[in-house]
């Protein structure tokens, strides 16, 4: 465990807290509890791996953490703000300013250059062209793709596409980076590269990372592993590197 995390544990307020969060889908007999009451506290600077079989509620939990979805009941505090009380647009603004997303399927805009993809969140932040270019180039440089700025996703390998996606997620310097099976579509060599990249982002930029994964090798990079089962947290343990 890094000294930063220790400090964070003791001094800084938590980044986010979940109190008795549930999520139900459907009505009547078809009613399904995706989350049956989750309590969770995340501190700034943590690198969390979320594991569990499909249907265990981890994706629903990620959607709520990512402010893409609101809990059915319970409380989600992000930096002390109750997300449940926010409107759709307020949640969008929260994502814009504090969150970064990395997806299993990369989710880059087709026929759009790497640089333009990375610029996208900055456009929504209203930055001028010069600053956008400067920050997007820096982010591509940070993921080791400075020579691929003008390439479109179709011209990049899977590993490279995921790096562009990571550059897009970190270009706004978010407080929390949510990665949903970031290595799910990659071979083991590329997966290791991506994990090392995420680790360095977590370590060097102090960005909190929450990552869903099915592979224990990938989870080993994290310093905390949370396992979901049947809509509940089955285990939550610190993990030494």
């Amino acid at each position: 465990m890094t000294s930063k995390s220790v400090m964070a544990d003791n001094v800084l307020p938590p980044l986010l807290e979940l109190h008795g969060v549930t999520k139900t889908y459907g009505m009547g007999d078809a009613r399904m509890h995706a989350l049956a009451g989750i309590n969770l506290k995340l501190n700034p600077g943590e690198f969390v791996a979320v594991m569990g079989p499909s249907g265990s509620g981890k994706s629903t939990c990620m959607n709520i953490l990512g402010c893409l979805d609101a809990p059915s009941s319970g409380e989600y505090l992000f930096q002390g703000v109750n997300v449940g009380g926010l409107t759709r647009n307020q949640r969008a603004l929260l994502r814009r300013h504090y969150l970064g997303f990395v997806f299993q399927g990369f989710n880059l805009l087709n026929r759009t250059t790497a640089l333009e993809n990375v610029e996208l969140p900055l456009i929504y932040r209203g930055l001028d062209t010069a600053s956008r270019h400067r920050l997007a180039k820096a982010a591509l440089d940070a993921v080791g793709l400075s020579s691929r700025e003008t390439h479109t996703p179709g011209e990049l390998s899977g590993g490279q596409q995921q790096r562009v996606a990571i550059a897009r997620a970190i270009v706004t310097e978010p407080s929390l980076l949510l990665a949903d099976e970031p290595t799910g579509n990659l071979d083991s060599k590329r997966s290791i590269e991506i994990m090392e990249l995420l680790t360095s982002i977590n370590r060097d930029q102090g960005i909190t990372v929450v990552m869903v994964t099915h592979e224990t090798e990938m989870a080993d990079y994290a310093n905390r592993i949370i396992t979901f089962k049947d809509g509940l947290i089955e285990s939550d343990q610190k993990h030494g590197n």
Binding site: N89, L93, L94, R95, R96, H97, Y124
Partner: peptide, 14 residues
Amino acid sequence: REIGIRLAIGALEN
């Protein structure tokens, strides 16, 4: 999907 990406990274409805 593209719209989803835009919304996820913080585009407002408007």
